[in-house]
Every structure is written in structure tokens, then in C-alpha cells.
Design a protein around this nucleic acid. Structure first.
Lengths: 213, 213
DNA sequence: GTCTATAACGAGATAGAC
DNA sequence: GTCTATCTCGTTATAGAC
């Protein structure tokens, strides 16, 4: 665990801006909003982040690093693929419970209006996210803990899309049950085996009958 | 099919505004944008839609009705549950191919900044969408054409979320392969394999999936 | 129904004092 | 690093002529 040192002004600005973007979108928050909340003049904000594009880029950068830290924490926290997957899903769930959208999910909606640098960073976030997840899925399949059809890359895209969509639709009015449903079905997708055996679809798959405790 | 009668000014405004919202979001388009594109002064736009909130409400209303028409067309077009499901997924795919986000998916991202009336309409769109889909899934399960775990409502939420998320992430940089992956796995979720997965030579699923690409 | 003109406000950004 | 003051532009919206 990182020591949480006293946060500088730049960090406080990022904290506030991050929440505003996650809830309102990049085009619906302003320096004035951050200024009011922090009790700092707009001009001072420009001292730390000269332009809104620069602030936006810094937001993605920090969010991305923070997300990668969380992924490493998942790796350290458990060896079991299903447990890791559950914690991965919970990463998204915790964001939603704070009434936020994933930062990059929100920015993906705004993508046509973003500066090129931000657009590229959003794409990178999703790509690396999917790459990590695919690696985890592959390891799980090799160990027999997970069972799924198709390539791990394809399933990883499915997971990321579904989780981002769950947050979106939940916020759009569906509420928490939307996310719960998606989390449940995604886990089932990779062979939520032992407890609730899938319908005995005769010889559905001859490979990887691996069951875990 | 409805005759396409000559479109009035209000319809043209809605057409343009709809595309702008679907690509840029509700807060990143302006009367000036619509004005420039249609060659009509801003003040004239206000004659048709007095406020932006009113325009937004009209957008959702028309989109919702159009979507319901498409659902009815699916019901008329085929009796087969899997075929209906494929066409349902293709509804989303066609929007994405036009480089747009689902209108209500986009508005779901903007939800914290929307007028209350619009927010309620967005929620209704998703709710009715899920209700229709759940009914379709139930009928498919009864007929034996579909096979899935859990309630139809839960699976319907999963479908809508995943499809919305697929559009979001695809636009965020993932591209068309994201949507293809999601479409594929969603179909598998309802028992694509009931005997077909073992015979990959059979052309049906391939053809169906090809249209989604 | 469409126009010109303008009001009233908020946005991102800059200059320069302290 | 933070401030006051200001600039310029874009936004939604209105008044009133044609």
C-alpha cells in the first residue's frame, strides 16, 4: 500500500475534475466548477493545468495508472482466476456505487469532441485493459479454473464492453440490478461451474472440464 | 413500411440534432450547429423547439417511437427467436456502423446534466426495451429455440447493457471487432450451441453473424 | 416561419500585481 | 502560487420586423 501523502493543489484539482468528468462528462464541467469547489480562482487552476485539454490528458493518465495499480493488486491478492475475475468486476462495481461512470467510459461517449491526445489515451486504456484481462482469462483456462468459448481477446472485449455498458445503463435509470445482472452473467460466461452447473447441453464442450472448489 | 413523406422543418431539425447528440452528446451540440447545417437562423429553430430541453425531449420521443417500430418489424419479419435476436442485435450494429452511439446510451452518459423530463424518458426507453426483449427471450425459451440461465429480465438487462457498452467501447477506440465479439458472445449466451456449436460447418450462424459485421 | 439584432450569461484563457 | 481584472468567444433565449 502506498502511503497517502498530503495532496498538493494539482492533486486536489485532479480529484475534483475527475469526479466532475465521471458524473457530468468532459464538456459539462468547467474550470469555474472546480474553482468554486476548491475555493481557488480560475486563474490559479490555469497555473497548474494551462488548458482544459492538458487537464483532461492528466486525468486519463492518473486514472490509467491508478487502474493498473488496482490490476496489480488483484494479481497479488489471489491466485485463483475466478476470484481475480470477481475482484476485477468489483472494480467497476465500486465506481458505480460511488455514482460515477468509468472515466474512460464517459470519455468514450465524448470521444468525437475530445482533443486528439485524449482520444488516443482513451483507446490505450481500453486496449491495455483488454490485454490484461485476456491474459488473466488465458491463465485461468490453462489452469482449468475457467472455461469459455472463443479467444481470450474476444471474451475480454465482451467483459469490458458489458461492464462499461452496465455502468452506463445503470446510471441511465436501470439502477444497481443492471450491474448485478451483468456481473452474474459474465461470471457464468466463463463457466461458473461447480455450484450451478450449466444446463447439461450434451457435449457442449469436450475440452476443459476442469472444476474448481 | 411507412411512406416517407416530405419532411417538415421540424423533422429536419430533429434529424440534424439527433445525429449531433448521437455523436457529440447533448452538451456538446448547439443551436448554432443545427442552424449552420440547415441554413436556418437560430431564432427560427427556437420557433419550432422553444428550448433545448424541449428539443431534447422531442428527440427521445421520436427515437423511442422509431425503435419500437423497429421492434415490431422484427416481430413481423420472423417467427424464429434466434433470428429475431440476431436482428435485434443488428439494430445496434447498424447505428454503430453509421458512427453513432445509441441516442439514449449517449444521453445516459449525460444523465446528470439533463432536464428531469429527459432523464425520465431515457429511463423509460431502457425499461421498455428490456421488457420487450425479456418477452422475446421467454417466448424463445418456451419454444425451445433459446436456452439460458436465470430470468429473462436478467438476461435482457445483460443484452441491453452489453450492446450499449459495445457501441461505447467501439467508439472509444476498440472499433468494429468489439461489437462483433459482443454480438457473438451474446448469441452464445442463449444457447447458440444447442447442437450447432459442434457442427461449425453449418452455415446458419455464420451468415447471421456476418450481417452484424 | 423566417429573419436581424441583441440580451444575458458562462466558457476557456491571458496579463500582470502581489 | 494565488490573486484581480479582463478579453474573446460561444451559448441559450427573446423582441420585434417582414
Amino acid at each position: 500500500m502506498k502511503r497517502s501523502r498530503p495532496r498538493g493543489t494539482a492533486d486536489l484539482i485532479l480529484d475534483t475534475a475527475e469526479r466532475l468528468v465521471q458524473t457530468r462528462g468532459f464538456n459539462a464541467f468547467s474550470y469555474a466548477d472546480v474553482s468554486e469547489e476548491l475555493g481557488i480562482r480560475k486563474a490559479s487552476l490555469h497555473h497548474h493545468f494551462a488548458t482544459k485539454a492538458e487537464l483532461g490528458a492528466a486525468l486519463i493518465d492518473r486514472y490509467h495508472r491508478s487502474f493498473c495499480d488496482a490490476l496489480r493488486a488483484i494479481e497479488r491478492g489471489s491466485d485463483d482466476a475466478r476470484e481475480r475475475l470477481t475482484r476485477y468486476i468489483e472494480l467497476y462495481g465500486s465506481v458505480l456505487r460511488r455514482k460515477r461512470m468509468c472515466l474512460c467510459g464517459m470519455l468514450a461517449a465524448d470521444v468525437d469532441t475530445l482533443p486528439a491526445a485524449m482520444r488516443a489515451s482513451v483507446a490505450t486504456f481500453f486496449a491495455e485493459n483488454e490485454t490484461w484481462l485476456a491474459g488473466m482469462l488465458d491463465a485461468g483456462r490453462r489452469s482449468g479454473a475457467l472455461r469459455f468459448e472463443g479467444t481470450s481477446a474476444s471474451v475480454a472485449r465482451f467483459f469490458v464492453s458489458s461492464l462499461e455498458g452496465a455502468m452506463l445503463v445503470a446510471r441511465g435509470g436501470g439502477g444497481g440490478k443492471v450491474f448485478d445482472a451483468v456481473a452474474h452473467h459474465l461470471l457464468a460466461e466463463v463457466g461458473k461451474g461447480a455450484g450451478q452447473a450449466r444446463r447439461p447441453a450434451r457435449g457442449r464442450q469436450r475440452a476443459a472440464r476442469g472444476r474448481t472448489a
